[in-house]
Design a protein around this nucleic acid. Sequence first.
DNA 1: TTAAACTTTCAAAAAATAATGAAAGTTTAT
DNA 2: ATAAACTTTCATTATTTTTTGAAAGTTTAA
Lengths: 167, 167
Amino acid sequence: MNYKEAKEKFIGTWGALGSLWGINKAMAQIHALLYVSPDPLSMEDIMEDLGISRGNASMNLRGLMDWGIVYKVNVPGERKEFFASEKDVSELARTIAKERSRREIQPTMRVLKEVSSIEDDGNKKTQELIKKTKEMYEFVETADAMLNRIVNQEQNWVTKTLVKFLK
Amino acid sequence: MNYKEAKEKFIGTWGALGSLWGINKAMAQIHALLYVSPDPLSMEDIMEDLGISRGNASMNLRGLMDWGIVYKVNVPGERKEFFASEKDVSELARTIAKERSRREIQPTMRVLKEVSSIEDDGNKKTQELIKKTKEMYEFVETADAMLNRIVNQEQNWVTKTLVKFLK
DNA sequence: TTAAACTTTCAAAAAATAATGAAAGTTTAT
DNA sequence: ATAAACTTTCATTATTTTTTGAAAGTTTAA
């Protein structure tokens, strides 16, 4: 497998995996491309490399910047904008976890809390709904907190301890 | 908010969240419905409650059974099949984590390994590709192992320790 | 201030995904 | 063995999501 094939394989796989962290194919592919590029790329470069339209490139780059994992880079002497990805994989994970928590987990927790707080009318079904959503709330709360901890500052203590266990 | 509204809110939210764990809306909604039902439901019940077709119900129930979080329940004296969801939220999470790892993370890791093993031809781009995919491989490997550990047996030691930290 | 270089927006088109429903398939009771 | 009760399959239709491309917008250089 040569460079070109390997790069395409990586970009393709990463693109297909986009759903894992909730983004579309083009967005994931742009990210993959920037992640393995030694230098920042222009929109032109990206369009050409991935075979996508200008509008598509523009919108998805904006999306990646909203996620906070891609940013504009000023290249001296160049008029157009260049883009680069966050290169540190831990930092990448940290940002993604934080964003997903904010965008999806927190809103869900709000609903779980709301639903589990309805009045108990004595009906079996109502009681089950309250019980199950309460359990779910507590679980998600713990899981989210764990994820954030793991992925955040406290990497030292917790991660090191865990990693020791896993080796 | 009464029972009906609360139930619909939960089912709707859970459905919208389906993408978080990679399943479609109907599938997530069926799961939500079964999760908060005190008793097993027939396909008829599910179709009616969610307003979906028979074919849709059938296929998505099968999908949920493939995930291993919904199963058939035999109700004595009834000819038709009844379905119930795994009710323990930790068990649910464990199953989902295991399946996602098997379906998505493992295949991705295989590609990362493959791509990071190409021959170093001395080119800067090739070297960057190798370096970045290697880093990603190592990170995903650790994260996957952590997730599995956390979600699996060793809950006692690790989880308790972590939970203590998070309270 | 003008115009070239570049980027963004968004209505329309294309592609991908999900849902329907009726025919085919299965199981069970008699 | 038959038929009623029920489930699955899958070609077709509907819906949703993504992509395009050209017009509108912005920035920069002269």
